[in-house]
Design a protein around this nucleic acid. Structure first.
Length: 426
RNA sequence: GUGAGUGUGGCCAAGUGGUUAAGGCGCCAGGUUGUGGCCCUGGAGAUCGAGGGUUCGAAUCCCUUCACUCACCCCA
């Protein structure tokens, strides 16, 4: 009987799955290099207030999904449920406004949300995200979106759909929210229970409802894009122009609002083809011009994006895209008898000093068993030391792919392996 | 928080009231003297998620509970 298993909503990333993770990570690092984004790592937990302040008290994340606890000194801490607020906190704390603006940062980190797990959704999941801080230029919005789409393209994901909207700023949004509330107030008798609540607390999310009774109403609802102030409208127009220049296709979706309160102007999400269910979003982001001010800094416009590592991998698998295989050991050292084993230990160590990856046979098993093991590991070659070789100061070098072998001195075998390794790379 | 489905050795999985719970993968060991991948043989490994009940008898029926999966809310 198993006494312990991974906590609900968490998962082990086993060796056989690492190829996907390393592949995605490699492309992530590469896209950040291409666009000049620098890595930042922030703590796994933060002062609870940071998230309440930034994400919004009325959001689901803060209301019911955070892992919060008091530490032994009584401080209230929260396991990071999203990546943007901590980056903003670090930007402020380290005076990054003194650096050339905008500052471009990225992170790869686990996040924690207490939710019921399901496909592509975990209580601990990994997100890759990047932020451009300190510029209101719509070209930066376009850059971030281009980067996001570029990442998926580099990974080989096909037919991803970009949805785009602008939800205005604190100057024009109140106006919009007012007409939105007026519109829904007249239809309140048609709304589902959730939406009645949303009308009171967070009217924007009325648009997000997938309830059959509410859905038709959202079609007729006032659109945020029609209420944008001159500045927001100009920003949105420029963004769309840049996206066209970049050759990116996008669907304008006036129902697209994001779950976090800090967004202003640009919001966008990216879906896989044939989206099924609302939780299929692979990545999303937007502009958050007030957030840094909100947590105590100077007004600092910024825009960012985040995408779920698990969801990228899920979609890679759904599209039958395989990850490059990870390197396998080059050599396997087998031996017969204790004296040979002594020699094998020394040889394996010497090969590693030469930078060759080596696995030394375990136990004292038959040669057959040892070679079976070497085969299972995918070793390129085996070095066999038996009594005879021991006597003659030789080893048997066996090519595990061709099945050919020859008797050599250890030094000759070493240079043979070395030449194969460098030759095999090109 | 709500709804649905599923729980049989490490993994997949047959069995739906009746003698020692199939099979496959994987693992281990053999198929003569020191050699892998194919094939053959053998072996280890399961209190049939847990607890209770019905019954002469339960993996199979009932109840409770736990876990997992999928979906909803919401999000990546």
């Amino acid at each position: 009987m198993i006494l312990y298993q991974a906590p609900r909503g968490t998962t082990d990333i086993l060796p056989h799955d690492q190829a996907y993770w390393r592949y995605v990570e490699k492309e992530v690092v590469n896209i950040c290099r291409l666009y000049g984004y620098q890595r930042i790592d922030t703590p796994v937990f933060e002062d609870a207030g940071l998230f309440v302040r930034s994400i919004g008290e009325e959001t689901d994340i803060v209301e019911k999904e955070t892992y919060s606890f008091r530490d032994r000194s009584g401080d209230l801490l929260t396991l990071r449920p999203e990546g943007t607020a901590p980056v903003c906190r670090a930007y402020l704390e380290h005076g990054m406004h003194n650096l050339p603006q905008p500052v471009r940062l990225y992170y790869i980190t686990p996040l924690f949300r207490y939710e019921r797990p399901q496909a592509g959704r975990y209580r601990q999941h990994w997100q890759f995200g990047f932020e451009g801080l300190g510029s209101s230029d719509p070209a930066l919005d376009a850059e971030v979106i281009n980067m996001a789409c570029g990442l998926y393209r580099h990974l080989g994901l096909r037919d991803m759909v970009l949805k785009l909207n602008s939800i205005g700023c604190r100057n024009c949004r109140p106006q919009y929210l007012k007409s939105l509330r007026e519109y829904y107030s007249r239809k309140v008798h048609l709304l589902c229970a959730d939406c009645k609540r949303r009308l009171e607390r967070n009217a924007l999310r009325l648009l997000d409802c997938k309830e059959e009774s509410c859905f038709p109403l959202t079609e007729q609802a006032p659109k945020s894009s029609e209420y944008l102030c001159t500045e927001c409208k100009g920003h949105f127009d420029f963004l769309k122009k840049y996206l066209v220049i970049l050759g990116l296709e996008f669907d304008l979706d006036h129902r697209l609002v994001r779950g976090l309160d800090y967004y202003t102007k640009t919001v966008f999400e990216i879906y896989p083809p044939g989206e099924k269910g609302a939780q299929s979003t692979v990545g999303g982001g937007g502009r958050y011009d007030n957030l840094i001010e909100e947590i105590g800094g100077q007004p600092t416009p910024a825009v960012g994006f985040a995408t779920g590592m698990e969801r990228m991998i899920l979609n890679l698998k759904r599209q039958n895209i395989s990850a490059p295989t990870l390197p396998q050991p080059t050599a396997f050292v087998a031996f017969l008898g204790q004296e040979a084993k002594d020699k094998a230990v020394a040889y394996a160590a010497q090969m590693r000093r030469e930078g060759i990856s080596v696995i030394l046979a375990s136990g004292n098993r038959s040669l057959k068993a040892q070679l079976r093991h070497a085969n299972g590991l995918g070793a390129a070659c085996a070095i066999i030391i038996g009594e005879e070789e021991l006597r003659e100061g030789m080893i048997v070098w066996r090519d595990m792919v061709k099945g050919e072998q020859q008797r050599l001195s250890f030094e000759d075998a070493l240079s043979l392996v070395r030449s194969r390794e460098s030759g095999g790379e090109s």
